[in-house]
Each structure stands twice: as C-alpha cells, then as structure tokens.
Amino acid sequence: MPAFAQSIGLPPQNSAAVALLVERLRVEFPVLRGKPKVAIRDLDISIRPGEILGLVGESGAGKTTLARAILNLPPAPGRITAGVVQFDGVDLLRLSEGELQRIRGRDISMVVPNPRGELNPLVPVGVQLASIAQVHLDKDRHSARAMALEMLQAVQIPDPERRMRAYPHELSGGMAQRVVIAIALMCSPRFIISDDATSGLDVTVQAQILELLRHLVRKQSSAMLFITRDIGITAHFCDRVAVIYRGEIMEIAPRESFFLAPRHPYTMLLLAAFLHNPQLRRAWTPPDASVRANVDTEIGCAYTDRCPRARKICQTTKPLLAERISGHFVRCHFPLERE
C-alpha cells in the first residue's frame, strides 16, 4: 500500500483549535466598463492543526486565487474586497506589507506548480534555500547553508552537496519540485498551501512527492491546504475534501463521507468523469447542455446551468452550504439524499 494512503490518522476532531480560518472571503477582478468578475465569493473554510484539507476544482474555479489570497497576494489585477483570513489570532488581510513579509515563507508557506519557472534562474538552488533561512530565521551565512543542505537531504534529493550548487535549469521537474518543497518546509511553517504541486509530474514521481510531503507535514504537525485538479489524489492524501466551483465551495466533508456518500451534483459529475462511464456522466449532465440558463450567480446557484437537478428556485435563491450529516456540508437545494 502506498505509504501516504496508509491509515492517515484523522486530526483531533474535538480540538477547537483552528490553524487557519477563512471567512466570507471575496476576491474580484475588475472588468473594463462592467461589473467586476467575482473569482472567490464569500468563501468560508477552517483548517485544524495537523489536518490536510483537499480542494478540488477545474481550471478557472478560483483555486490559485484562493491560495494566493490567503497570503494576501491575489493574482493581479484581482483585489480582495471583503473577508477575514485569521491566522494565529490576527487577520492577515489587515497586516502591513512588512508584517506579511515576516509571515510568508516562515509561518505560512506555499508549494507552487511548475517549479522550474518559479525558481530564480540565475541563482544556485542552495543559495535560494539558504536565503530563506537567513531572512526568516536570522541565521548567518554558514548555518543557513548547513540548514539548506539538511533540507535537501530531508526531501531526498540524491547527491545534495552537488545539488546545492546546481541552477534550476539543471534539475528535472521532480527534483525542482523537491527543492520547492524544501523551501516551503525550511522554517517549519504551521500552515502550508500546496497549489497543484504535483500536476506536471509523472505518476511514480508524484507518488514519491506526495509521500514526502505527507511525512514532513505530519512530522512538523503543520496543517495543509492541498489544491488539485485530480480528485483521485484527495481520496488517499487528505483528511477532508472540498469541491470548489466558480469561487464557491459546493461540498466539503471528511474523506470517507465525501467519497462513500457524495451529495452534490457537481461532485457526482467529477466522479463520473473519472469512470468514463457515458451513462452515468449523462445522468449528471443536463439533458440539453447547449442551452445555458443565464443565471446571476450573485443571487442564484453558480452550478445551475450545468445541473441536471436545477429548478426555478436554483436561479433565484443561492443555496447555503448546509450541514447534512456531521461534518458533511453541501451547497445545493436538491442534493442526493442518502439514508
């Protein structure tokens, strides 16, 4: 059994502690002569210490926007127009740039996709790693270097001494991904955001990277938001799973409940898509997909135009993200009823 799938100890359910709390977060992109486009709409999530929350969504759903907005750095020209991102008793959205600098990369860090493009091409990998320790942990050059080397060993890069001097273009995709993970874990952050961190990797390398990430996160008892397009990963890697569609959480539940008893029509479609079963997929697509209802997503359900169960009320009233059974929330007027 892949080690990362091995009975992941569920996070302490009763613990009231919260590692990160996002409330009513809203990110908008200005549109020339028009209403701004809402990329993240009044989104709430909370993640417990030690928990890995999976966030599944397709391109354009707002995954990356959410990840970056948590660090108060939404992709340009997006703007955070409302909400709270509470971490360690403070609202990150109200901090100054200088205060944020001290949190980013130290208390909250991010693992990015396509790491070869994200690393500075002119600076050796070891120097990039060491500068994190110098900046955030006030280490001198020498001990920062030692830490960097230790970190490269921890992410199991072969021949770390030599890799310290390597430039990003000399690394394979998998190796660069390990470096980015090493950078993210350097300061033992309490919260890690992984944004599609394994998307460009081959499956055998992906398996190694996931295992490594899980191991290190558990060791440091950090919490993690794991963003991905691949619903399969979340079934084996995450404690809870959320589905995001057009900037809104559609369903969020503990892993078992999510996969054994999914309830939202969009979740059903995503699962049917994996199976390549045309009948099931058709059952979860509206009969005439080409006729798209023009729904105002501000007042109606964002999924209306793709939903086979949509009725009048879906266009006029946005469903709440309501708890169906313990911990299993669904945003739908007509979710699948089970039991």
Binding site: R68, L71, L73, L100, Q101, R102, I103, R104, G105, R106, S109, M110, V112, E118, L119, N120, S131, I132, V135, H136, I183
Partner: peptide, 9 residues
Amino acid sequence: RYEVLCGMP
C-alpha cells in the same frame, strides 16, 4: 512573485 510569496524582502 514566488520570492514575494516566500516573504523575501
């Protein structure tokens, strides 16, 4: 952008 995300000055 990545350096900013990492909290680099």
